[in-house]
Design a protein around this nucleic acid. Sequence first.
DNA 1: GCCAACGTTGGC
DNA 2: GCCAACGTTGGC
Length: 156
Amino acid sequence: MATRRYWLVKSEPGTYSIDDLERDGTTCWEGVRNYQARNFLREMKVGDRLLFYHSNAAPPAIVGLAEVVREAYPDHFAWDVKSPYYDPRSTKDAPVWFMVDVGFVERFARPLPLPELREDPALEGMELLRRGSRLSVQPVSKEHFDHILKLARQRS
DNA sequence: GCCAACGTTGGC
DNA sequence: GCCAACGTTGGC
């Protein structure tokens, strides 16, 4: 069996929040329109863990945990002219964009705000913390992932 | 609301 | 292939 991998995915809470995922149980992760992020989506395996990050929030924060429940398949929103994610380059015969399905695992009792993460030497080198980092789907090392779970469970 | 950083587009 | 212009992301 392949080793489980770890990722971080961003979502604006006004668009889709961890509370929405908790309510829905599972959802399709549509709308990724960046090639590097897409390639990471396609590497995901069922059971991989996802840190759920709220971007454009005050403050931005890692707010919970999700898991991959279905591996990459074509993002049909790209075919829908009425969708904000419509992209005519993607066709049913040759899909360009993909999505996975994700399932709710937990909402952290203590969200981890970005400024706090930036100050943590144990997270040095994490993609999220790189200056100017905009990647909405990114791999996370096991060391960083484990540390973040530990932080989420600490009493403040 | 501002703007830095980044990815993409398209002229040449 | 270069690179300027543009649109978007996302922190602040």
